[in-house]
């Protein structure tokens, strides 16, 4: 099975990535796997955080974000599926690419000065190399604001 993995977090920065994955899917005729990763690292320093409950809540929130993405795809007659994984972001993206034998992996390109992204300008090339080596998927970075494609 081949497909397009589109890793998203929701929010305005993910919209161009979703749009790009839909247009790529139409072009290549492949199914999209929208991927949301539950990562609880931000709670590591928090007092009184029930990790088990929080994991459930973030899964639910992720499902909602994925539902939005799959609805966008369906509106353009594109086959899409939402996938939730839990763990470290980079490892889970690689695992998902391997699992579905993805041809493409779409990621939001980190912006200059934008913090909080798992990738940064300095590590994106190395990350792309790692995924391509591990899964054979082609990495496509999508600009956050104008959805301008930036292929490696």
């Amino acid at each position: 099975m081949a497909g397009i993995v589109c890793a998203i977090r929701g929010g305005p920065y993910s919209r161009p990535t979703i749009e790009k994955s839909i247009s790529l899917s139409i072009e290549k005729g492949q199914k999209i796997f929208f991927l949301y990763i539950v990562n609880l690292e931000f709670l590591s320093n928090a007092l009184h955080a029930n990790i088990q409950i929080m994991e459930e809540e973030l899964r639910e929130m992720g499902e909602f974000i994925l539902l939005l993405a799959t609805e966008s795809a369906k509106a353009k007659n594109v086959t899409a599926e939402g996938v939730i994984r839990k763990g470290k972001v980079i490892e889970e993206i690689v695992a998902q690419c391997k699992e579905v034998d993805a041809d493409y992996i779409l990621l939001g390109k980190p912006q200059m000065g934008q913090s909080g992204n798992v990738l940064n300008i300095g590590t994106m090339d190395a990350f792309a190399d790692r995924i391509e080596e591990a899964s054979g998927a082609k990495v496509v970075y999508v600009e956050g604001n104008d959805a301008e494609e930036s292929k490696k």
């Binding site: 929701g10 539950v38 931000f42 007092l47 009184h48 955080a49 809540e57 974000i65 913090s115 909080g116």
Partner: peptide
């Protein structure tokens, strides 16, 4: 406040970061 940090962390997990 701890509640601020927790809220910000979850919002960021949904793609809405607050600096």
């Amino acid at each position: 406040a701890s509640a601020n940090m927790v809220m910000a962390g979850i919002a960021e997990a949904a793609g809405y970061k607050i600096s």
